[in-house]
Design a protein around this nucleic acid. Structure first.
Lengths: 351, 351
DNA sequence: GTGAAAGCGCTAACAT
DNA sequence: ATGTTAGCGCTTTCAC
């Protein structure tokens, strides 16, 4: 900062700019530093009188422990780190905000870093968190990501919660957020309403999350669905996603529309499909059924209302928080595993 | 963590779980700690040979400085804090992600905290950041928020960038993101297309951001617009927003629709308005023109395409980052102020 | 029950 | 040019 300016300003405001330390309290109450520290840490050995005196002084002076110093000695830093794929449209950023919010309510502060779905990036982030004395981390596990990248950092953190889409075989704390059930349900809905050629429009990777269960379920119903049922898109920049999808539909289905149902990787893409199909005089869901993903708040109010898949972010955030703090409070607990299946939400567009 | 399990696991993986310290390098190269530290800090006094030796050793051992120890001594922690109103739908969470992303690219880590638009909460967060040796903070300033709440913490941080919607009179680094121009433009568009009663549907607070410029501009055009032109909504939970708005329209305009244009606080609310109006047989934009807010990626693909206001998040994030790191690199710079006006984006729904 | 003192890992001022 | 040393603020062990 512009030092002179700041000093002047602080002067004008009459602000004391030094942080209060334990030693300041010690001087105030005329006791040794360790006594003050111990009392502030709720050491029960001290008399009520002393305790009260110290607490009052701390309150009076506005004492706040220096987290850096605490952490340096191996103490808790009241910090949790969240490693997530934030860029790219397939990702539930709301969920991250939710977790951060929960954590903040507990008096913790969170670091949020973009994993870029890249093993090396995750490794660097975890190393970085370790240097900072981060107490615990939440790591989104993308299918195909080697988990040992993360496990090697296990000893640096008091807790480590993984959020994969399929159960990890390792005995670690994990909240599995699985799409299979929801995708089965939506395919069943397509079948029930007589669809013969349901397509899927999603990013190509990771295949196992959406494409595989979709095609599998179609095959289960006797529809020989292969990669010709997949309309893959690349989404480097979220902003370009709608245009990319529009162009994809234009170029690939200029002559005819071979599908009678379409599962879109996100609700926003479903909106593009709506417009594209309507421009061709197709009726939704009569001619083509549509299902989106994420159950965005607007989906219910599209015309027709858009069926979607609910990731259950609130519940997931809640469970993550629970498991995380359980572990922090009780380090010797057996590893926890909770599965939260996403839910298919029927609406008009699904037929 | 489950200690036994972790130890076994680490054992199996053959992982060395101790962090490498300067002293480890010092032992490795048989030099005093300070020499190693100095060299690692790019002290130019040392010979090439020594320098190389130390650097190689650091690389070999995978040395990473302990940020806590560095910060404790008053050094940089490579951390920036972001204080923003995250809950509540009026807020550009994307922007926060953008900033965090930029910061990460620079090798910094970010803390993100929800300000709840509350002075006391902000105060606590800044105190907390100060305890953690956070290098710099970015603070969203909501109109009406007393800035001295923040200024009193000025001396704790190496940089402090404010993001208000109107210029702050104080000489501080600030990126002003202003709506006035965009709202003027959209009102002018309404007038140009002959609208007589344009309404606005937004949260009641802060009035000065959207409602005031909207009504002012209408009055400028000779339309005596007052609070009867405002349809205020409360949005405690984002998820409930569409239903709340729907019910609001239902109950307030059961008999007749008095407006021929509607400016919605977010694009999602515009979607609700679309459906509600269409259900009543109204044509958009012929009967009622609609403009949303945020220029969400789907707006262009609604039917009709939705006019909106672009917050220019990317540009804002970029400027914030630039000012922030300018200040960190050059503490004696004069305070910077940049204004980035939002932009009205015309599309079919605006008529 | 109370208090002195030894670090945590790093930085930087200060000797040599 | 190179090396010594005194902390930063807190925690925790161990004397008293």
């Amino acid at each position: 900062m512009h030092v002179e300016y700041v000093l002047t300003l602080l002067d004008v405001l009459g602000i004391e700019s030094m942080a209060v330390r334990i030693i300041d309290i010690a001087k105030d109450v005329k006791l040794p530093i360790s006594t003050v520290g111990n009392i502030l840490r709720n050491d029960s050995r001290y008399g009520d009188e002393l305790t009260e005196k110290v607490r009052n002084s701390a309150l009076k002076l506005g004492y706040r422990p220096n987290i850096l110093a605490r952490g340096l000695k191996g103490g808790k830093t009241q910090t949790i780190g969240i490693v997530w794929s934030l860029k790219g449209f397939h990702t539930p950023v709301d969920l991250v905000q939710n977790i951060a919010f929960q954590v903040q309510q507990r008096g913790y502060v969170s670091h949020i870093s973009d994993s870029f779905c890249d093993a090396d990036a995750i490794n660097q982030i975890l190393l970085d968190y370790a240097q900072r004395g981060v107490d615990a981390v939440v790591v989104q596990m993308v299918p195909g990501m080697p988990i040992h990248i993360c496990l090697r950092h296990l000893s640096y953190f008091r807790a480590m919660v993984f959020v994969p889409s399929f159960p990890l075989p390792e005995a670690v704390d994990q909240v599995v957020v699985n799409r299979d059930r929801a995708i089965h349900d939506l395919v069943d809905q397509f079948i029930k309403t007589g669809r013969k050629r349901p397509y899927i429009m999603v990013p190509l990777n990771p295949r196992i999350e959406k494409i595989a269960p979709f095609l599998d379920r179609l095959n289960y119903h006797g529809i020989p669905a292969g990669d010709d049922f997949v309309i893959p898109y690349q989404s480097h920049k979220v902003k370009e996603l709608p245009d990319i999808c529009w162009n994809l539909l234009e170029s690939r289905f200029a002559d005819q529309i071979p599908f009678d149902a379409l599962f879109c990787g996100v609700d926003e893409v479903a909106i593009v499909a709506y417009k594209w199909l309507m421009a061709r005089g197709r009726k939704i869901p009569q001619d083509v059924a549509i299902v989106g993903f994420n159950d965005s708040i607007f989906s219910k109010y599209l015309s027709p209302s858009l069926a979607s898949i609910d990731r259950c972010d609130d519940e997931v955030a809640e469970v993550i928080e629970k498991i995380l703090f359980n572990r922090l409070e009780n380090p010797n607990l057996a590893p926890q595993q909770v599965t939260i299946p996403m839910k298919f939400v029927w609406r008009e567009s699904a037929g």
